[in-house]
């Protein structure tokens, strides 16, 4: 069964078209991540799915029912917001219970589900506190708890980790992945952090300017990006694009090489001068200006003695490079 089917979704605000003909399915139990640059319409798409915004045209189908005219509370969804959005006047426990009370669930059921969520998220010590007395990470866990207790058909996360610091972000990321495994629920997760996208997703949807650029598993997108935008968006450091490449490429096209696929090699096909070195301990990133005056990044595993202003020669395996035509579309080689 499919958890969510979007058909020809369009959304305009006045004359601004924010979403254009979005078609998408989310299978049962699938973890789907929406990525894309800021302002591309990720949040808007999520809000259309949640019913907080009406689509201008197209249908939203959740768990087999068309829900275009169903209010958010009846769509069988739960949402976690970037800003937590906890009710300031309620305790942690009541924050979680409110949705169930609104559904008129029996007391025993509410009690049981809330306790289970509190257990699962390790919030025992804080149940009677107000949101203002919690740290950012704790607040976000309460927000996740509020979503869990509703036992929705579909979870929606809108950049839930972007207000957390790096260490906490990693922990919470792992918690969310575990949550997905335990609940085996369908989830849609919006982020512009590509580590989150690559590590959490069963399927990534890359959006640009309100359009779906490519859909696929993380490794699919990494290995077979369909155009230059997707190629440049996933992978860190970003892919290098050379206009004056050492191999034959079509007129106006570009050659794309991932930084990790370049290596230092005497007599290599690319020559350049090191302009900056980033030593991360495990990796070393070299920023190089080529003889053709193009900037490229090289990622070398381990530590390396190369210094700024060194002249280096680089090479790569041709089968790991990508070619794009003048319209930035991928050309199969």
């Amino acid at each position: 069964m499919t958890a969510l089917t979007l058909t020809d979704i369009c959304k305009s605000f006045g004359s601004a078209e924010v979403l254009k003909d979005i078609n998408l399915t989310v299978e049962d139990g699938e973890f789907v991540v929406f990525v894309g640059p800021s302002g591309c319409g990720k949040s808007t798409l999520l809000r259309v799915i949640a019913g907080l915004e009406d689509a201008t045209s197209g249908t939203v189908n959740i768990g087999g029912d068309v829900v275009n005219n169903t209010p958010p509370a009846k769509r069988g969804i739960a949402m976690v917001f970037q800003s937590y959005a906890l009710y300031p006047h309620l305790s942690v426990r009541d924050n979680m219970a409110l949705g169930l009370r609104q559904e008129k669930q029996p007391k025993a059921v509410i009690e049981e589900r809330v306790s289970k969520a509190i257990q699962m998220l390790d919030l025992n010590a804080y149940v009677d506190r107000r949101p203002s007395d919690l740290s950012g990470g704790q607040r976000q866990r309460v927000a996740i708890g509020r979503a869990i207790v509703r036992e929705p058909k579909l979870f929606l996360f809108d950049e839930p980790l972007s207000n957390l610091d790096a260490a906490l972000r990693m922990n919470t990321r792992i918690e969310i992945a575990e949550l997905h495994r335990t609940l085996s629920a369908s989830m849609i997760y919006v982020t512009h952090d590509q580590t989150e996208a690559m590590t959490l997703a069963d399927k990534i949807v890359v959006l640009r300017d309100g359009q779906v650029e490519q859909v696929g598993s993380p490794m699919d997108l990494y290995n077979n990006p369909c155009n230059r935008f997707v190629a440049g968006f996933l992978g860190s450091p970003a892919m290098n694009f050379l206009k004056k490449a050492p191999v034959d490429i079509p007129q106006g096209g570009t050659l794309g090489i991932r930084p990790e696929h370049l290596r230092l090699q005497k007599g290599g096909r690319i020559k350049g001068t090191v302009t900056h070195v980033e030593r991360l301990g495990g990796d070393t990133n070299l920023l190089i200006s080529t003889e053709q005056d193009e900037a490229i990044t090289v990622r070398i595993f381990g530590q390396n003695a190369t210094a700024v202003r060194d002249v280096v020669e680089l090479d790569f395996d041709s089968h790991l490079a990508f070619q794009f035509d003048g319209d930035d579309q991928r050309i199969a080689v």
């Binding site: 958010p72 969804i77 800003s83 959005a85 906890l86 009710y87 949705g99 559904e103």
Partner: peptide, 14 residues
């Protein structure tokens, strides 16, 4: 007032 807060309320059925 944060939109997210109002939307959270809507999703909870307020």
């Amino acid at each position: 007032v944060s939109d997210d807060l109002k939307n959270a309320g809507r999703i909870d059925g307020l």
